[in-house]
Amino acid sequence: MMLKITINGLDIEVEKGITVFEAAEQAGIYIPPLCHHPDLPTFGGCRICMVDADGKIVTACRAPVKDGMIVKTDTEEVRKVRLTNVELILASHNKDCQGCSRNNSCRLQEVSAFVGINQDRMRKIRRSVEAVKPDDSNPFFHRDFTRCILCGICIRTCEEINGVAAIDFAFRGFHTRVSVLGDKPLKDSKCESCGECLVRCPTGALYLAKPALVEREVESVCTYCGVGCGVKIGVRGDRVIKVDGNRDNPVNRGDLCVKGRFGFDFINHPERLKKPKIKKDGIFVEATWDEALDFIADKMHDIKAKHGADALGAISSARCSNEENYLFQKIFRALGTNNVDHCARL
């Protein structure tokens, strides 16, 4: 069923059941969001997306559209409420934006700019940041409480996306913060380190233990289990420094697990093999590709000649590509043996 509503004087037809926020989004009208995330159920705690709907100030992210509704997103009253709210958040927020991993990609910065934060007004505020030590127990991502805006996105992510529910709000009022059962370090909780919360954090509260701003991204498929999650490999220089879930991939729609997201150290690991090696008198000696491949080809011909092709065994890999598996079996079948297998059974 379609409803007719007006947003800022524009007549819009929208589906019944959607929220004012979604309706505005469809009409291309920006309403500043902080605690809202399209993947998650609404929360309604930040009070930034407030709009005037039929004369009442409501949170756009929760208010359902009604037929004939008149929405105004930029009245004097709306501007004031939003501005005060953002000022209040900034009052206890870390001031150091340059030193923040999310500088330039921060939702709070975006919203602050939109509502028109200015220093004259900010001088009236008593700014103080509660000194709480960051939780750096997890090896992949840490939590800086001074940059947390308590939007609850990480909590809802853990509950709704991953289904682990390792974190929740703890304490009360101004002392509220995100924590785990018993207020222990994250590492000692049931957190599975998937990093889905990190990805959705609108500020720099959750940040990578090793900063990773990439130069370019390459779409690929995760190399671990058989789910085949789409990934975006983040490259800086000649190194892989980050892996993100590919939200456009139909398999995982952006979700990843701890291995897929963070387990890429092996790619640039110093122990990677860099040269072919041939064992001579029990000791491995570096060789050129031609030497190594000639050695193998000769030996294989030799075995085939002496013992027949079935004296060769070929163990392919469930980690290699289709093309590589194809070529591998092709080599051995062309040599005349079906002794081709791989680790499917392990």
Binding site: C225, S317, A318, N325, R333, A344
Partner: peptide
């Protein structure tokens, strides 16, 4: 069956098995 490795299905599909071709 949930396959355990990123291309265990493909390795089978490509005939990296003793009894079948691709």
């Amino acid at each position: 069956p949930l396959r355990g490795q990123n291309n265990v299905q493909g390795a089978c599909d490509m005939g990296a098995l003793p009894n079948v071709f691709p």
